[in-house]
Amino acid sequence: MSPLAAVGPAFTQVWTAFTVDTAPTPGVAVVNLVGPGRGNMMGRAFWAELPQVFAALDADESVRAVVLTGAGNHFSTGLDVAEVLGGWMGKLGPGSVAQAAQRTELLGLIREMQAGITSVATCSKPVIAAVSGWCIGGGVDLVSAADVRLASADAKFSVREARLAIVADVGSLQRLRGIIGEGALRELALTGKDITAERAGRIGLVNDMYPDAAALLEAALGMAGEIAANSPLAVAGTKAILNEDREEIVARGLRHVSLWNSAFLHSEDLLEAVAAMGERRPGVFMGH
């Protein structure tokens, strides 16, 4: 197999929230989350570009496996709530009367974000997530859509949405059930607690742990190289078969939570969560 030629649109297009590069290993692409924003936060550019990046990689015959990682010290600190949801505070706030159009628009936004994460899960090229530092909220949604998750010893994971008065709505609640099991999923999702890479390994969230980011990337590239050396037809077929039942169940769950959040996302608790984030204090929630 000839070395990966970086000529496809995934490699040649200039992205805002990502870089896409070739790896020394033939057939392997490396997708880096690069922000913009503190800790590779997931702003509007991220959600717009994510499905485009993975559609381009899916269509590129020179790509046989993908390593997904974060630039800098963290994988991702999750959704940029202020940028993505800030505008909805006014649209659905006090004084609003008829809100069907606004809630329909919000439903469309949620489903676009869901489709972005799903593009990783349904990409015919296997995706290995290599996680260092924080992986919070939307970051966990993203890695739950990968085929394999590896972590460095400093990695920390948090399904944090409940602490922000949000029901996680882009895939972690649906996909993690088959990865870590019902009990661990409910613990993480209902408490919003942070867990270490060691705990993530014990519950099966990550396949293996490495001492530092350099060793992690080396291992991820090595595993991607093993995949890339196999028959691409057999690999794509294997992933399609593995996805069959799961993605049908996931799609049903995503439809449900998108309707739930388009109806109930806006609350006094959400406004309090946003204010608390800005003031760097714990939120005080009253269930309103």
Rank of each mutant, 00 (worst) to 15 (best):
P282D: 06
G287Y: 03
A224R: 08
E182R: 13
G183K: 09
G72L: 14
W15H: 11
V120G: 12
A155F: 05
A220H: 09
C123E: 02
C135P: 02
A228C: 10
A129H: 05
T77A: 13
G108Q: 10
L4P: 04
V81N: 13
R160T: 04
V67Y: 11
G278P: 00
V28C: 14
I195M: 05
M1G: 14
V84H: 06
A6K: 12
V127R: 15
Q102H: 12
V63A: 12
T104K: 15
Q99W: 06
L150K: 04
N207I: 05
R202V: 05
L142I: 03
D141L: 04
V120C: 11
P51W: 05
R255T: 07
D60H: 07
G78P: 10
L265M: 15
A29G: 11
F54Q: 10
L173K: 02
E279Q: 15
A151D: 03
A200H: 08
T77E: 07
G287L: 03
N261I: 01
G133D: 06
A56T: 04
T22H: 01
A276Y: 00
E248Q: 13
K125M: 04
L190E: 14
D154M: 13
A214P: 00
R281F: 01
L33G: 03
L68M: 12
D169I: 02
S62K: 10
P3E: 09
D194Y: 07
P126F: 12
A220N: 09
P9C: 03
V284Q: 11
G278R: 03
L176P: 04
E268Y: 05
R255L: 14
G138H: 06
R177Y: 03
V131R: 04
G133A: 08
I249E: 09
A229L: 01
P24G: 15
T191Q: 11
A236F: 00
Q99E: 11
P3A: 15
K239A: 02
R64S: 10
A151K: 06
V63C: 13
D58Q: 13
F285T: 00
L242N: 14
V14S: 14
G137P: 00
A189Y: 02
R44S: 13
Y210N: 07
G192C: 08
V131Y: 03
G171P: 02
R64F: 06
A184K: 00
I136H: 13
V274L: 13
A129N: 07
R202D: 07
G171S: 01
W134Y: 07
V14F: 00
A215V: 01
V159W: 04
R246E: 08
G35Q: 04
V257S: 01
R199T: 11
V30E: 07
S258K: 03
M209T: 15
R175Y: 04
S2G: 12
F11S: 11
I195Q: 05
I110E: 03
G171A: 02
A228V: 06
E49V: 01
V148S: 08
G139L: 06
H266Q: 12
M41K: 15
K193H: 07
K193G: 10
G253E: 01
A197F: 06
V84I: 14
R38D: 07
G86N: 09
D154N: 15
A240W: 00
F75H: 09
I136D: 10
A224D: 05
V148F: 07
A184F: 00
G171Q: 03
L106P: 11
A184G: 00
A229Y: 00
G70K: 10
A275C: 00
A200E: 06
A59R: 14
A215M: 02
S231K: 04
S124W: 02
L205S: 10
G43E: 04
V34A: 14
F54R: 12
